[in-house]
Structures are given as C-alpha cells and as structure tokens.
Write a protein that binds this DNA or RNA. Structure first.
Lengths: 137, 137, 137, 137
DNA sequence: GTGGTCTAGACCACG
DNA sequence: GTGGTCTAGACCACG
C-alpha cells in the first residue's frame, strides 16, 4: 500500500498515516473488512520507523476506524452510521468547520466561495457521497 | 479583553491566542486600527506568561494581521482585499476544507449536512458576510 | 522640513529620522552650514514625540554629522573628506556591503546584478557622485 | 560547527546565528540536504541558551532556508532559483543596497570605491558566483 | 535522541 | 509606559 508521506511537512508523520488511511476508507479504496498491511510491511515500504506506523495504527484502533484481530492483523471496521438530519454535529467536524471559516474569512473569501471549496474537496475525495445522497447503506 | 483559553486542549496556548484574535477581527469585534491589550495586560488577565502572549503577537505581526507601533502597542491591520471570484483558493483554506471533508465523511455526514455546518460556523462567527447574505437563510 | 517616517516599519523612528537627514545631506538637499528645524518644530510637523527627534539629533551630533551652536540651533557639518583610493573602507560601509551580498546571494542574484542594484541606488540618491567623480571639493 | 558570535554587538544573538548560517550556505560551506547541529549541540558549543538557538532555527525554517525533519534535526533546503536578468530586485536586497549607498556616500567614498567594496565582499564570501566570474578580476 | 512549549524572572531599547 | 531578548529550567510530543 502506498501512502504519500512528507516527513518535512510539519504535520507529524503518524498523523499523516492516519489521515491517508481514513481518506482511503471514505474514498472507498479500502473496504470494510479489508486487511491493512502489517506494521512492519508498511514501515518498510514507506521507509519509516515501525514505531511510527504502530502509533498511527494504535490511534486508528482507539478511534474505532480499524480493529486488531490477534494473529491476523488490522482490519477496516464498519463506518459510523450516517447521522439523521438535525442531529448534533460531532465535535471534530464542528472544529474543522470553525477553522475553515476562520481561514476563509481572513483570506477575504465570501461564504459562497468557501462552500464551493468544500464541495470541490468533497468531489476530489471521490467518496461515497458523490452525486446523490444514499437513502440507506 | 477576554479570550477563552484552554491550556489542556492540545493546541498550544499561543496558537489559541492567535486564533481568538483572528476570530475577533473577522467577526468585527476588533476593528482595523484598534489597539490590542498590551502583552503584559493580556498575560495578567489570562494568567499566562508574557512571553507566551508575546509569541502569539509576534506571529500575528509576521503574518500582517497586526502591527507594532513602538512604545504604543499592537494594532489591528487592514484585512486582505476580498478575492475576486474564480481566483485560486489559498493553500491554508484548501487544507482546512480537505480536513473538514475528511472528518465529516468519516463521521457519516452527508455533503449537504457538511455544507450546513460550514454555513452555521459562518453565522456564529457573525462576520461581515452576514449582512449581505442574511436574506436567504 | 518633511521627512517620510513610517512608525510601523520596524526600524526605530529615531533611526529613520537620522537616515533621512543623512540622505538629504548626501543628496545635496541639505547644504553644509544649513540650519535644521528645531527639535520642537520637527516633532510638531512630523507628529512625533520631541524626545524621539532629540535622540536622533543627539546621535547625529555624536557622529559629527551635525553640530549644535548654543542658542542658534543644529547645523549641518562639513562632510568627511573623500577617501583616497586604496585606503581602508570604514567598518559601517563594509558591514553594509557584507549584508547586501548576503541578501543578494541568497536571493539568487548574480554579482553583476547586485552591482547594478547598487548603481541604481546611487542614481536614485541623486547625490554628488552622479556622473563623473569630483577631483576636489 | 563554530559560529563567530558577539553577544555585545548590538545585533541580537539569534540574528547573528541566522546570518552566519545563511552565510555558510551561500558560501557553499553548508550543502543542500546537510544536517545542522542540533539545537542543544549548538547551544552548548556556543555557550548559549537552547531557546536562543531554537529561535534562530525557527526563523530560518519559517523563511524556508532550512527544514525540520521530526526526530532527525534541521536540514539545509535548496536555494532560491537564480533570478532571470531584468526581474525585480527583492525588497530586502534593495533595502540593503540603499543602506550601503547611504553609508558610503556619507563616508565620502566614490561610487567606484563602493562597487569595489561590494565585489570584495562577494569575493570574501567565496560564493558560487566566484567560479563563473573569476576570469575578469 | 529530536524540536516545541511554557514558566519565572532579568535586562534592554524605544517613545 | 511599550515590546524584544536572553537565561535557567521543566515538561511534552515525536521518531
């Protein structure tokens, strides 16, 4: 599995791994139940310290994105159930929305332009949300 | 000036100060040309070391958000000019949009729900866009 | 006397005054023996604290650029004698040359391009060196 | 790594460190990709507080002169691309040229003498321009 | 091991 | 009064 990692990007490497794995999952390039490469495999193929990959996997497990099956490896877990309209937005999402608005407003972008950037980001993710919203899953 | 600072939030305190000041500016609660509290004042009122506040102010100055007038204090600078439609989105904004979409998609939010969260965040900011776009909500 | 002062430029105001006065002298817009405005006059016309102007005048006096005649005011002194070729370059000049070369080299400028910038700066000063070098003065 | 630091020179120590590192880079005594001594190492060998060295390194990183690789240290980044002839001179360079001309003119140096000082400074830097332009001196 | 953050406290230049 | 620099020393995240 290839993941684009930039050791000099400022973002800690283990977080980049987490982000990329999550990105592959929401984009459908990693399916529920699919097995991830072992810590050692991924570390070797990316030229990273196994401790770094281990920390990323550990965090992903702690947040229920993947699960360990002893002796078998790490596997992608089922995604969260889609939130019915009107329910509370998770803290992480609201926080990300707040930051986006702060960055956009200070850069002089309009609200419409900001929303367009979000739609564009969603399109580029190529995730399951593309086009119509699904009714069930 | 009160700023809600959470020393145990993980985000460095000096960055929280930066964010809050930027937030007040885009929300119009700090006007262009207005003076910020002195480093010592703010440090005392927030129970922080002056060096921490100084670091936040220094970063804000380097990014042209505020300016120093020697012996007088720090002052809010004029905001960026609004970007003409179609122009490139600044890297920081695109990055924030990418993260939002990642968080939202993994939390199982729909695209529409995500956009709604952004609009909500914009509304809560109380920014200058409000007046112009209020009619249609 | 008008001097372009920018209180938010980073360079201390008293140094800006010194630089501008020196600039006017080498450009010939202030002649040897000419009287400078009083501290109070200049402070008022520039909207500055008299202590600031006083510090600038004091430094200019200490470096023999101007002189005080008690009860009469501050006057421009005769310039340094031109240095015969081959003599040692004053420390301040060498230091300025070093910094220029550092900035230029790191910005990727060639040596020729750097020299051109110096010639341009000299032209814009409009000083006595324009065109031919004088033999005596 | 030895750097000549003068704590009583007026120029802040962290700026002296920055200047010296930049000087070594443009002189080719620090190569692109080369690792700098760690903050602690340099602080110890220069008898300084690690925070002071850290400030210098942080500024150099912010200006893209060096980059941090987490857990590994700071590394020299690739230099700016050389500027095509005729392009605008960066503000920092023009500012340095202006100051040089001011210092030189007031010291009574001729224009030719000033240019010679610049060429000398360039030669002493031992920069990469030397090879290309050595023939004609 | 690496750099980043924060406190406590001193001293300085500048206006 | 203002901000800027520096030391001494602790603690933390990251690799």
């Amino acid at each position: 599995m290839f993941l684009p990692i930039d050791p000099s990007s400022g973002l800690p490497v283990y977080r980049q791994i987490m982000d990329q794995v999550r990105r592959m999952i929401v984009a459908g390039r990693l399916q529920v139940g699919e097995r991830l490469p072992s810590i050692r495999e991924l570390a070797t193929s990316l030229g990273l310290n196994p401790l770094t990959v281990g920390k990323a996997y550990g965090e992903l497990e702690r947040t229920h994105v993947i699960e360990m099956r002893r002796g078998l490896g790490m596997f992608v877990r089922a995604a969260s159930a889609p939130r019915p309209h009107g329910e509370v937005v998770p803290a992480g999402v609201q926080q990300a929305a707040d930051r986006l608005v702060l960055e956009a407003a200070q850069a002089g972008l309009t609200r419409a332009r900001t929303v367009a950037a979000v739609e564009e980001a969603w399109r580029e993710l190529g995730g399951r949300e593309l086009g119509k919203e699904r009714k069930h899953r």
